[in-house]
Nucleic acid binder design. Structure first.
Length: 419
DNA sequence: TCTGGGGTCCTAGGACCC
DNA sequence: TCTGGGGTCCTAGGACCC
């Protein structure tokens, strides 16, 4: 029996999904074939490139850059708005299709999965054939291309392989292919080697993945501490992390943040934004049957300075009201009244399963009462949408009652995160 | 109307304890 | 009462990923 690990990666996911949807709706232009991006709403200060077509990429346009900058590179650039609820459906459909080939699938992000595949006998299909069938079936039935990259023996090699040439390709990267296929690539292509690390490596005279793989480990340790072992291991194809089928087991925390349409200059408005964020965080906690033992907030100023503040709780909880209460206290402790605020975030972590925590909460009438209210509100929102019920303080506030995960944008999709 | 939003992990430094 | 040295927990911030 042989075991193979696949990494499946949707090519330009948001753009591909919007393109397929538009064609389905009867449009004649395939936005994948012209310089086009999925871009946020510039009027509400969300104007960045979320995904780009290949023709747009040829203009040097990068994901994450401001739409303004992208348009300077390509004046005729087309931009379509994101449709997060479509993306959630497409992501789900993709994972379901992959699961037809193997039950052991780990969703790694909205557009990436790892899959374990066992070839039990010679009669079972070989992995490359499987890869082509999977990719072609997704293209034929769902209407977008994927890279079934990375057929290999572990996750890092699988993932590196799906980055090779795009789109609509199947690549292998077995250990014996490492020197030929991986080592010549620039070190910045390696997973976990970002802008800062690649600059430091370059300064040490390390430019390719192969040079990192064979570099002096002690020297690397001096500069990168334990991170040295990770990246040098990756360069040598070393990774024994398992494929985990359930995200529920591995989720460590959850949070939502938002860039507010206008500069926030007063405490009351900030508190109101924190409430809308606490609403979505609380909903997600309860939906996942979690309680949180830590609450954190973050502030980004108009000058893009970041600050954060957090607090451990005596008792873990999942009530919207309590998340908001702590968030307000943290905000008041952190914010010094200037400069104005562009972005606010609420995050919870130190997650416990609900069943365990409830024992310690059992005696508290307050918690029980909050729980009943939260459950009722969650139910109504789940059934009738986020606008169906809202706190009175949001009326005439100019703010959405629930914010996070694409909620509070132009539409009300389901949540973007995996939970 | 330049610069989103969702995550994880690591580290330095301080508090506190023995 | 010239000042060690572990260990743990907590916090803020930074690096990375998609």
């Amino acid at each position: 029996m042989s075991r193979y690990i696949f990494h499946i990666d949707v090519n330009s996911a948001y753009l591909s999904w919007s393109a397929a949807h538009r064609l389905q709706q009867g449009e004649s232009l395939d936005i994948r074939t012209v310089p086009c991006v999925v871009g946020g709403n510039e009027k509400s200060r969300h104007g960045i490139v979320l995904a780009k077509s290949i023709p747009a990429k040829h203009f040097g346009i990068h994901t994450g850059e401001p739409l303004m900058a992208a348009r300077r590179k390509c004046p005729n650039l087309m931009s379509v708005p994101p449709d997060y609820s479509l993306y959630m459906k497409a992501s789900y459909a993709t994972v379901e299709m992959i699961k037809r080939y193997s039950p052991k699938v780990q969703q790694f992000s909205v557009d990436e999965c790892f899959m374990d595949y066992y070839q039990h006998t010679e009669n079972d299909m070989d992995p490359v054939t499987i890869g082509h069938r999977l990719k072609d079936q997704i293209k034929d039935e769902l209407g977008f291309t994927v890279n079934v990259g990375g057929i290999s023996t572990n996750k890092i090699l699988a993932k590196m392989a799906s980055d090779f040439t795009k789109p609509d390709r199947v690549h292998t990267l077995f250990p014996h292919e490492l020197k030929d296929k991986l080592w010549p690539l620039p070190v910045s292509d390696l997973f976990m080697v970002g802008r800062r690390t690649s600059k430091k490596l370059y300064d040490l005279g390390i430019a390719t993945i192969g040079e990192l793989a064979t570099a002096d480990t002690d020297l690397l340790y001096e500069h990168f501490k334990s991170f040295a072992y990770l990246i040098q291991g990756y360069a040598n194809g070393v990774d024994d992390s398992p494929i985990r089928a359930s995200n529920h087991e591995i989720v460590k925390g959850m949070g939502n943040s938002t860039t507010v349409k206008f500069d926030v200059k007063d405490k009351a408005t900030a508190h109101q934004v924190l409430l809308s964020l606490s609403e979505s965080v609380g909903m997600r906690l309860r939906a996942g049957n979690f309680c949180a033992g830590l609450v954190a907030i973050s502030i980004t100023s108009t000058e893009f300075g970041h600050k954060s503040h957090q607090r451990k709780l005596d008792v873990a909880m999942n009530s919207t009201t309590y998340v908001h209460q702590i968030a307000k206290e943290l905000f008041d402790e952190l914010w010094d009244n200037s400069p104005p605020i562009r972005k606010l975030g609420v995050r919870v972590s130190d997650l416990h399963t609900n069943d365990y925590v409830q024992l310690s909460l059992f005696e508290s009438h307050d918690f029980e009462r909050e729980k009943d209210i939260d459950m009722a509100v969650d139910h109504i929102r789940g059934r009738y949408g986020m606008d169906a019920i809202q706190r009175a303080s949001f009326l005439h506030s100019g703010l959405r009652p629930v914010t996070g995960g694409g909620i509070g944008e132009d539409d009300y999709p389901v949540m973007t995160s995996i939970l």
